[in-house]
Design a protein around this nucleic acid. Structure first.
Ligand SMILES: [Mn+2]
Ligand SMILES: [Mn+2]
Ligand SMILES: [Mn+2]
Ligand SMILES: [Mn+2]
Lengths: 218, 218
DNA sequence: AAAATTATTTAGTTTTGCCTAAATATAAGT
DNA sequence: ACTTATATTTAGGCAAAACTAAATAATTTT
């Protein structure tokens, strides 16, 4: 048996394990809005359960079982988000909180049927890849942040780095949604802000925004 | 704020409050598979929160706020069951457990959109009425248990008293599903078992089964 | 009406998941 | 290298939601 809380910790460790080094206590505390001491407690428990490799003062990383659980939660989160947007007409900035709850519903049958009902989607409403039944993520697209794209190279918006409601609403307003084609026309020396071409128009965006938009390089 | 546990208690009190008298401690303990002492603890808390009227040794009943919460949970439970059966092709005996979890997802927007997505259904897969947004149940059908129907009176199956998987699977196998027309041909003196006409055939069922099948009398 | 049975409450305990405050380890600055 | 700052752990505590065992109230039987 597994609690929702344990699942959220495993998901957080997965999210914060970038290269191959794990996640630090403080990074987890920050990510989960908790105190560091609570993290230490839980890491010990997760280690006892055999889901996490934990050494004092050296942070935590997922072992095989833990990673499978984390990816299963991520899969459920992204499938539910897809359901909420595609079937219930929620906007992409409204679904995270609800999926945060739905991801903990226990029923393998439910996940698989939901997956089929949605047409086995490969990406969620924020462009994040959805792991398959075997917890595998396949995303072969060449990706880059918009802030790092060369001048006059046409790229396609495929995701966001941070999916906070603020950013998503801003992008929505400027019609910078998934699938749109963009060219960077100019990068201003002064503040690194970008002038881009999109939807047949021109538009200025800040470096900060560009750093949070993921694009596919053809 | 409200916990899932509190919600389950309120729902149980609602389910066990038949006429106007509330639910007893032991009845609740039995219904929720808990010990009586746990019930007493929670009834005090729910009373403090103003959702339940509780007097020592006299059981508990819902007050206005408590009833609204209970009906909201029932609404969500039945809408999710409808979703699982109508959209994800679950069988009617497979959905209760999952709905027991889904009913606690917090988002008014979600419930309303789900309701619309399902076409504002009025009954769930077991024939139970679904409360509307204002927590009102309207079910004007004349109902009776099949065990009390007079000989040769044609009735329609509209629900079950107990929706355990065992009963549901039995009914499924005999094709005694919602909407079917039935006539009671004979009641055997010996064991009160019934001979009924259904689907153009004749069939014997026990008194026990008949006591758990709800029918509409035209 | 008294005794026996059943229902309910009280008292005390456990586990989970969080917290604060204090202690200690690690990393950074001079 | 020594001092300061930051990160992490330890110790102790708290609230929620369950439990067991014992006490008491209510109901039923004789
Ligand atoms: Mn979550
Ligand atoms: Mn997402
Ligand atoms: Mn429930
Ligand atoms: Mn039902």
């Amino acid at each position: 048996m597994r609690t929702s809380s344990e699942e959220d910790y495993l998901k957080a460790i997965y999210a914060l394990s970038n290269n191959s080094d794990g996640a630090s206590t403080n990074a987890l505390a920050n990510h989960l809005n908790m105190k560091a001491s609570s993290i230490t407690d839980m890491l010990k428990k997760l280690s006892d359960k055999g889901w996490v490799h934990y050494e004092k003062y050296k942070g935590a990383s997922l072992n095989i079982d833990g990673k499978a659980i984390a990816l299963n939660i991520v899969r459920k989160h992204r499938l539910w988000e897809t359901f909420l947007v595609n079937k219930l007409n929620f906007k992409w900035d409204e679904v995270h909180e609800i999926a945060e709850q739905l991801e903990h519903i226990k029923s393998n049958e439910l996940v698989d049927r939901l997956d089929d009902f949605l047409g086995n989607p490969t990406f969620d409403p924020h462009g994040d890849p959805i792991p398959n039944k075997d917890h595998e993520i396949t995303d072969s697209r060449k990706r880059s942040y918009l802030s790092e794209v060369k001048i006059n190279r046409e790229v396609i918006i495929i995701g966001v780095k941070d999916s906070s409601a603020q950013l998503l609403q801003y992008l929505e307003k400027e019609n910078m949604v998934l699938g749109k084609h963009i060219s960077v026309l100019e990068i201003h020396d002064f503040d690194k802000s970008l002038r881009i071409a999109i939807n047949g128009k021109e538009l200025n965006i800040s470096e900060r925004v560009a750093q949070n938009v993921l694009v596919q390089i053809n």
